[in-house]
Write a protein that binds this DNA or RNA. Structure first.
Lengths: 233, 233
DNA sequence: TAGTGGTCTAGACCACAGC
DNA sequence: CTGTGGTCTAGACCACTAG
């Protein structure tokens, strides 16, 4: 453990424990330098990291203060489906349901994918053990990824294949809820109309749209992840 | 713009543009020191920041490399409801629907709130203009926040009130989907059974549970936010 | 074993916000 | 003004690891 991490951890503990409440002024850099007997750069690095994490606010001439959690903002970590399943101890499997090549993109929901060329349209199921975990509908721009036309998606999920072949540089996400239609419900083994969590993802590479994925997770509550971020903007 | 930010931005641009593909070795620190004519600490700070952001991976004796987006992980930013609404240009309003004090916590869904004392149970609606935007059901531990017993929640959302009175130090979130029941549907002005996005939040202060909130957003697709994070774990 | 990144030092100058 | 944090320098030693 580096000294910088130790300084950071000790201050973070005092904040999280409530010993230093929001608004409390934490020691000046030169005071911490004296306390730890180190250079100011080391103390500064620790405090800068705490500031980036939103735990403290720093003001010139005034000092550093425990941040007020002004905004109820938080960050949800969306992990990879495969790792979610395997880390729960279940066996992961992907099954392709359908595959088609469409001459061009549909207008509505694929708007972020700019090119108007042939599109590969896939539908598949992610399994956790024997149970369906996620229904995935995916569109791949064949102009951006011509190799996808001959790729074998029968066992390998398209997301993983794409990662290996066309590393993305940018992604956007949308999250929401939708009632499962009859076909989706049958695939997922749930009742028609049951609420599903919907995760949509668009992926670009160097400004060019690569793929769009729409993933349905059967509810009622999908435990994603929890991350902590106080302060915020 | 500091020199460190400039170095970081220039490298980040080359990665995001696709000029430096995943696996590409970026210049050694001493090469960047020569290129920018600065100290190694400055270059190191820039590269360390890129490494933290997941854009590059650093290996001793080998160098720094553009990271492979191994994991399809991403981060969803969950903003404050009020700011979401006002930033869309709508007027924000909160209306309290019900208020009650329950002798102790219910067993099931409030498990993370450890204390078994009296609980304040609130239900309210967040409005965007005239339309219901979010139905909130909240439980406040009166042992942790005794002032809440006499607080006026008729217009001020409990989340904001709590922020002012009991700044939290830790929060956990869960996200999912649920079918609106008859009562919820009526409040939200949607059909019974319509899929809603559900956001659950537990808040602690110094290890003691403070409050639990369950928020229903009418679907179909709630545009939360999109953040980018390549690499990942 | 040689060269990389990880960390730290003991200074320095500056911008800026409180006093 | 004065003192804080923001940034940078020109070194240094060390741990690790790839060759």
């Amino acid at each position: 453990m580096s000294l910088e991490r130790r300084i950071r951890a000790e201050i973070e503990d005092r904040i999280r424990s409530g010993e230093w409440r929001p608004g409390h002024r934490i020691p000046f850099e030169h005071e911490l330098v004296a306390r730890y007997g180190c250079a100011r750069a080391t103390v500064n690095k620790a405090l800068t990291a705490l500031s980036r994490a939103g735990l403290i606010e720093r003001r010139r001439r005034a000092g550093s203060f425990v941040a007020f959690p002004h905004v109820q903002s938080a960050v949800l970590d969306i992990p990879d489906i495969r790792s979610v399943i395997t880390e729960r101890g279940d066996a992961y499997r992907f099954a392709l349901l359908s595959r088609a090549v469409r001459p061009r993109r549909a207008a509505a929901d694929e708007a972020p994918l700019k090119p108007v060329g042939p599109m590969l349209v896939l539908e598949g199921l992610h399994f956790a053990g024997a149970a369906a975990f996620c229904l995935e509908q995916r569109v791949i721009d064949l102009a951006a990824v011509p190799e996808a036309r001959t790729a074998d998606f029968s066992a390998m999920p398209p997301g993983s294949w794409l990662l290996d072949h066309v590393p993305w540089t940018e992604a956007r996400h949308r999250i929401g809820a939708a009632n499962a239609d009859a076909g989706q419900a049958a695939h997922l083994g749930i009742a028609e109309g049951a609420a599903c969590l919907v995760l949509e993802r668009w992926t670009w590479r160097g400004g060019a749209g690569v793929t769009q994925a729409r993933q349905l997770f059967p509810g009622p509550l999908f435990d994603l992840v929890a991350t902590f971020r106080p302060g915020g903007a």
